[in-house]
């Protein structure tokens, strides 16, 4: 048992993650061709616009389920909404944000784009602290909009006229996943601008612009889109009570900032917070690179059902960071 634990702690989890992501990508992007349908309430961007999708991103059914009149909320509609959310919650409670770091196909694509940039030796961008704090709010705004707009399509909000149906489903219209993921199954039909109405034109054009920004943005900034992802905001609800956790033994932290340095999203609290034990923040994707980069024995620890499964160790750190760059 001790040996197994030491083996895991000293392992290179990034490499494991790389292959795991490929497997998850195949599952979520091509799984449909093998008649795989995992669930329709997945907390990851398994885009249903992609014909081969092995599941459905929860944001799609969520928007559909919210697209109903008030009266239907107290009735079958409300029950469906609740049931859907419960299924989603189960996924969220078990794996928490690891959905983002290990399973999300759109996240995987961004990681691949990052790999391409590394090969080209172009440096990455990092946000300043204030910019970061400002930008990270966008995901909550998007989440709010994706809840309120479907309601506004079927109901009159604040005595305003109902929104045009062309805006629906609002997030999918601007989500790069809708455009990018079908490309992997050779489907370019999502690249279009709908000129039928002004709303449709705006939304589809916005979708194209966001996709363009997605490609360039994730080339220069690691996990560019994740900072704006409303799914990440939605999953954050469960991170405090989830079974899979990232804990910080704050007494052991030297605040060297290694964890912050390797963080793809750029969470500063991971290095600076010496008060909270549960260190999963709203932008975190549980990629566990921070655990890898921590040289303090047992300072950062991943636990599942309160059983530590992976923790930072000195030996592990040296194996991953130092011995591999010995001078030749």
């Amino acid at each position: 048992m001790k040996k197994i634990r030491a083996f895991i702690n000293n392992s290179n989890i990034s490499k494991f993650r790389f292959y795991f992501q490929i497997a998850a990508f195949v599952l979520f992007v091509y799984g449909g061709y093998f008649y795989v349908t995992i669930s329709e309430k997945l907390p990851t961007f398994a885009c249903p616009f992609n014909k081969g999708s092995g599941g459905t991103c929860y944001l799609m059914p969520l928007q559909h389920q919210l697209h109903m009149t008030w009266s239907r909320f107290i009735g079958p509609g409300g029950i469906h909404l609740l049931k859907g959310f419960l299924v989603f919650a189960c996924f969220g409670l078990v794996f928490s944000k690891a959905w983002c770091g290990y399973l999300c196909p759109l996240g995987t694509i961004q990681d691949w784009i990052t790999k391409l940039r590394k090969v080209l030796h172009i440096r990455f961008s990092k946000y300043g602290e204030t910019t970061f704090k400002g930008l990270k709010k966008i995901k909550y705004i998007l989440l709010f909009l994706l809840i309120i707009i479907p309601l506004g399509v079927s109901n009159s909000l604040l005595w305003l006229p109902k929104f045009s149906h062309d805006i629906f489903p609002p997030f999918c219209k601007i989500c790069p996943g809708r455009i990018v993921l079908p490309l992997f199954t050779g489907d370019t039909s999502q690249i279009y601008i709908d000129f039928s109405t002004k709303t449709a034109m705006t939304m589809t054009a916005l979708g194209m612009i966001v996709t363009g920004i997605f490609f360039t943005g994730s080339f220069f900034k690691k996990r560019f889109f994740c900072l704006f992802c409303p799914m990440s905001a939605l999953l954050y609800i469960f991170s405090k009570v989830a079974i899979l956790r990232l804990n910080k033994n704050v007494a052991k932290c030297t605040r060297c900032g290694n964890c912050y340095r390797v963080c793809d999203v750029g969470i500063k609290e991971i290095a600076d917070d010496v008060i909270n034990k549960n260190i999963v923040k709203d932008d975190c994707m549980l990629c566990l690179k921070c655990v890898e980069a921590c040289p303090e024995e047992g300072c950062l620890e991943v636990s599942f059902f309160n059983i530590p499964v992976f923790m930072s160790t000195e030996t592990g750190f040296f194996k991953r960071y130092c011995l591999r760059n010995e001078i030749k």
Partner: peptide, 26 residues
């Protein structure tokens, strides 16, 4: 038919235009 009111080309042009535009800004 979708082809009546949607344009693949304009979408593609916009997509392709945005990418270098952002890169230039950076």
């Amino acid at each position: 038919s979708k082809t009546m009111y949607t344009s693949y080309l304009y979408g593609l042009i916009l997509l392709i235009f945005v990418m270098p535009a952002v890169a230039t800004l950076i």
